[in-house]
């Protein structure tokens, strides 16, 4: 059922040229160089330390690695990280998709 729903959404966003993050409930990650990361549409902060930040989103987790990481601002669905960014990794749930 959910898979079918997902397919409909993908089709709709393509057909009407809608932003995919809104339609698909996916996080939008904006980085400014390697000093700032701006994550929207996430569902929770899982782990937070100087070197690693893990964030939950609908279909999995995002792992951000870096140095001297810190949360500049945190809201319900927004997160602004600062520090020396090294990588952003997506770890989708195995059962998802």
């Amino acid at each position: 059922m959910s898979k079918w729903q997902q397919q409909i959404r993908t089709w709709l966003s393509r057909y009407f040229d809608l932003p995919s993050d809104v339609m698909l409930d996916l996080p939008r990650i904006t980085t400014i160089g390697s000093i700032h990361v701006y994550i929207e549409n996430h569902t929770g902060l899982l782990h937070f330390s100087d070197e690693e930040v893990r964030i939950q989103y609908k279909q999995g987790q995002i792992r951000i690695l870096g140095k001297d990481l810190g949360v500049k601002m945190m809201l319900k669905e927004e997160l602004l990280l600062e520090g020396e960014l090294k990588s952003v990794e997506f770890l989708p749930d195995s059962k998802g998709r």
């Binding site: 929770g44 902060l45 899982l46 782990h47 937070f48 330390s49 100087d50 810190g70 949360v71 500049k72 601002m73 945190m74 809201l75 319900k76």
Partner: peptide
């Protein structure tokens, strides 16, 4: 359980800024 605690706070509409981890079990915000 800092992260779940913060997550719960945010869900209630809190506004957190300038968070830094000082120690594995201590966060200043």
């Amino acid at each position: 359980l800092i992260e779940p605690f913060l997550q719960a706070c945010i869900k209630r509409g809190c506004y957190i800024t300038n968070m830094r981890r000082v120690d594995p079990s201590i966060v200043i915000l």
